[in-house]
Nucleic acid binder design. Structure first.
Lengths: 203, 203
DNA sequence: TAATATAATACAATAAACGTATAGTTATAG
DNA sequence: CTATAACTATACGTTTATTGTATTATATTA
């Protein structure tokens, strides 16, 4: 342990195993249905090792979520740093957001959203806000450069991105399309061109 | 309750709700991860009502499995009673078997097979045997009529059908094909024609 | 109305999961 | 080699979840 009472969690092999195993189990079964013991057994790790690295299950969950969030931000920045037209970058970002949600099982989403675990709900909230600001800044730049309509309220964009992610995960919505990919495409096109044909480029 | 200490379980609406809800939950999360309380809550039914109709969770599971088995037999007999060429009926039966397995979640299969719950393991065993005999009889008839090679050991057929069902659920196998359907088709063709081109009809 | 089905709640009994203590076993760096 | 850290195994007390029942009350229905 260091001065702050935490441990460098990525240092050990076993710790990585715990994290990866848990990520998998949570992914498929959500948070509630997976116990610490199950994680340990599946990871082939003693319970003591678990509690060496994590205070408890929630601590582990928060760590995993933070990690995923960091990955997301990295990917986002990677895309935005590319030297390609704004519209292309934006498309990639949207695709990332939409398909990122699809990754989780329905169960995971439930456990994540329904404020059943306050710590998790808080973290999710703060992640959303940070994400929101990150995107807002980039949109501000893009608008200055004339890449986005002047008359649109910028705050609408990160807000709508989140809504889109919800839609991409909504069973009812998915069932209206022949594949999740075609729904993704629909949402992207809608985001850029609205519903009017004149503005559209493809088709 | 009747003389034997059981109840006609299909009589009541609520009971149906319990059964259907449980079937859904088990389907997605397997047996272990689903509790009686969760079933009741999801079904909108009081716990007392549950215990009126079922001794416990296992009792419910067994009932559901029996029901599914009965459905399977009915479907099987329905197919075999059709007045079409043997090969066609056989294809349909195989398709039914293969796609029936795919219905379950991986979790459900695990709980079903791994003899974690002895009663369930027993039931599964006895179902397999009954199924086995059922098919064997039909194959015997078919062989008498000259619809199946004389020199094949009939016992091999129901045995191999079960193996095929396993294969159709095997992740490794599935990943080798572009879709589960194409794997199904492959297995069916293999079953009828082996690997030699001369015997094959299509392609 | 009498009988039946169901709900709501509280409750004791049981089981599962949690988190810690202890002791012993690899690994590994000095 | 040895001291230290990483880890395992297991047992254990505690807490929480689940089970199954008892009781009382309320709709439904024959």
């Amino acid at each position: 342990m260091n001065k702050k009472g935490t441990i460098k969690k990525t240092a050990s092999k076993k710790c990585r195993q715990i994290i990866d195993t848990a990520r998998n189990l949570f992914w498929f079964h959500g948070l509630r249905r997976v116990s610490v013991e199950e994680i340990c057994q599946t990871a082939g790790v003693s319970k003591m090792t678990f509690y060496k690295y994590f205070k408890n299950k929630i601590d582990l969950i928060l760590f995993i979520l933070n990690e995923m969030f960091r990955e997301g931000v990295t990917r986002y920045k990677g895309i935005m740093a590319q030297n390609v037209p704004f519209a292309e970058k934006a498309k990639e970002v949207i695709r990332m957001k939409l398909e990122g949600t699809k990754d989780f099982s329905q169960e995971m989403l439930k456990d994540l959203m329904q404020g059943n675990i306050p710590e998790v709900a808080e973290l999710m909230q703060s992640m959303k806000e940070k994400n929101y600001k990150l995107i807002l800044d980039d949109m501000f730049e893009a608008q200055k450069k004339g890449e986005i309509r002047r008359d649109i309220n910028l705050q609408f964009i990160p807000y709508f991105l989140n809504k889109m992610a919800d839609m991409a995960g909504d069973e009812q919505m998915i069932s209206m399309y022949e594949s999740p990919q075609s729904l993704t495409a629909e949402l992207i096109n809608f985001f850029f061109y609205g519903i009017l044909t004149e503005k559209g480029e493809d088709k």
